[in-house]
Structures are given as C-alpha cells and as structure tokens.
C-alpha cells in the first residue's frame, strides 16, 4: 500500500516536471515557428516604412541595446555601491533595516507605476521628455533592487576569514573589497545583472510613457548621441504596439528576435560567470 502511494506520488512529480518543461518548450516552439518566417534580413536591418508598406525593426533593436546598456550603466554602479555600503560599511541597525525594507518594497511595485513616476519626474520635472534617457532612468529604478539584493547575497557568502585575512595584512577596507570581495562575489553579481537585463528586455509598461515608441535609426554620426534624448521604443514596446494594431505576424517576428536576444545574453553571462568562477 505504502509502495503504491510512493509510486503514485513519484508519477505526479514527474508529471509536474514534464508539464513545466513542456509548457516552456511549447511556448518557445510556438513563437519560433510563427515568428521565424517573418524574420528576414530586411526585417532586421530596416525600419518600418508606411509608404512602402514594409515592416522592419532595426530601430527597435538599436533602441533596445541603448536601453540595456544605459540602464545598466546607471543601475549597476548604484546597485553594487549600495550593496557594498549596506554589507560592509553600515552597522546593522534601524537605517540599514529601513533601506533593506525599502529595496524589497521597490521590487514589488507594478511597473506601470514606475512608468508614471518616470514620466512625471524624469520626463516633465527634469525636462528629459519622451526619451531613451528618461526610459533608462526609470528602468534603473526598477532593476536597482535586483542588483542590490543579489550583490548583497553574494557578499554575504564570502567567508569572514577572507576579510580578516586581508585586513590583517594591512589592506585598507576598500582595497580588500576591490581585490578580494568583489572578485569572490562576481558570480552572484552577474546573476543580478542577468536578471536585470531580462527585466529590461521584457519591460513595456514602464517604457510606453517614458521612452515612447520612436523607431527610426539615427541618420548622422551626431544622431547616435542625440538619440539619447529622443523617443525610442524597445522591441517589447514595439511588440505591444504591433499587437494592439493587430499586426500579429510582425509581433511574432519581434517575439522570436526578443527570445533569441534573451537566450544569447543568458549564454554570454553564463560563460562570463564560469570564467570568473575558476577558483
């Protein structure tokens, strides 16, 4: 009787595992099958032209790269910096508790609220308007908790003996952090960055009213810099817009490209993490 129960339970567990796996593969497969026929060289390297009636996402790809890089440029130093402060400098107490609580709360806020705040604060109050920069600042706020939390967790796993070892040799605290702690915590930090990239790639609600939906490519060299202050829709935003206009074939094309990007970045960071984790 007991045996039978065990076997049944095992069956259920396998079933659950297969269901989860199947769902993932199913979604990926469906998107790729529907999307890849849309993806052509032209689709990837041109911008949508209403006159010619063609669809292209080159502008959106560029916007997405801008958004990922800019957001990380803002959020990674801030996130790692605050994690180092919280973990290595601040004495545990009310203030640290409050900051930790705020960070937790920040990660639970719906993204459309970030969009609202970003539009009003960065867009209007700071006068950045609908621009990639406004979007990047907004997203930086969103991913900050991810990076801070993951860095903190990674720092916590570094043995205390490394700290006292380095300090006892006369290393200053910052030198110790730079040469011992950060390298040892690198895999965890990269995990945080990876999650942040996923969040940036997938975000649409917070960007719709901050970075807008521009899809043109810069025409001159200076244009690549001016672009920071111009509206630019990422792939996810364009995906949303295409769906709302019932252009499902374009939407699936974008989805396929987006998924490839996510997989690619995952792979890249995994390789990096492994390289850092040699010891």
């Amino acid at each position: 009787m007991r045996r039978l129960k065990d076997d049944m339970l095992l069956c259920l567990i396998y079933l659950a595992a297969f269901a989860a796996e199947f769902l993932l593969i199913g979604i990926l497969g469906y998107v790729f099958v529907k999307g890849f026929p849309q993806v052509s060289w032209h689709f990837l390297t041109s911008v949508t032209s209403v006159l010619q009636g063609t669809a292209g996402i080159a502008g959106n790809i560029v916007n997405t790269l801008y958004m990922v890089i800019l957001t990380l440029l803002i959020a990674v130093p801030l996130g790692i910096g605050s994690a180092i402060y919280l973990n290595e400098y601040a004495r545990p107490g009310k203030i640290v508790g409050l900051i930790a609580f705020t960070t937790e709360t920040l990660s639970g806020i719906p993204s459309i609220l970030f969009g609202l705040f970003g539009m009003v604060f960065f867009g209007s109050a700071l006068g950045l308007g609908y621009s990639i920069l406004t979007g990047a600042f907004t997203l930086a706020l969103m991913v900050l908790p991810l990076i801070t939390r993951n860095t903190q967790e990674a720092l916590k796993t570094v043995p205390e003996a490394y700290r006292s070892g380095a300090l006892s040799m006369g290393a200053g605290r910052w030198h110790m952090i730079r040469t011992i702690l950060l390298p040892a915590a690198m895999p965890g930090i990269l995990t945080g960055i990876l999650l942040a990239v996923g969040r940036i790639l997938g975000e649409s609600a917070a960007l719709l009213f901050t970075a807008g939906s521009g899809y043109f490519l810069p025409r001159s060299f200076g244009g690549w810099f001016r672009k920071l202050l111009e509206s630019g829709g990422t792939l996810s935003v364009q995906l949303y817009l295409s769906m709302s206009k019932a252009q499902y074939s374009v939407a699936f094309g974008i989805a396929a490209v987006l998924l490839c990007m996510v997989l690619g970045i995952n792979l890249l960071l995994r390789i990096l993490a492994k390289k850092w984790d040699v010891v």
Binding site: A161, Y162, S164, G165, G172
Partner: peptide
C-alpha cells in the same frame, strides 16, 4: 594601522588562503 599590520603579521586558526592563485596569495601583501 596599515603600517602596523605590515610590521605585525597574523596567521589564523582556520587556514584562510584567498580564492586566487598561490602566487597571487603571496604577492597580495
């Protein structure tokens, strides 16, 4: 304090080599 700790070295109860090469461990100080 940095100078002091250069003059007064310490070895701990639990061996605590840093997660780096043998060479870099010695060269750390």
């Amino acid at each position: 304090v940095t100078r002091l700790r250069k003059r007064v070295g310490m070895v701990f109860q639990q061996p605590n080599p840093f997660p780096m090469s043998i060479y870099d461990n010695i060269a750390y100080g």
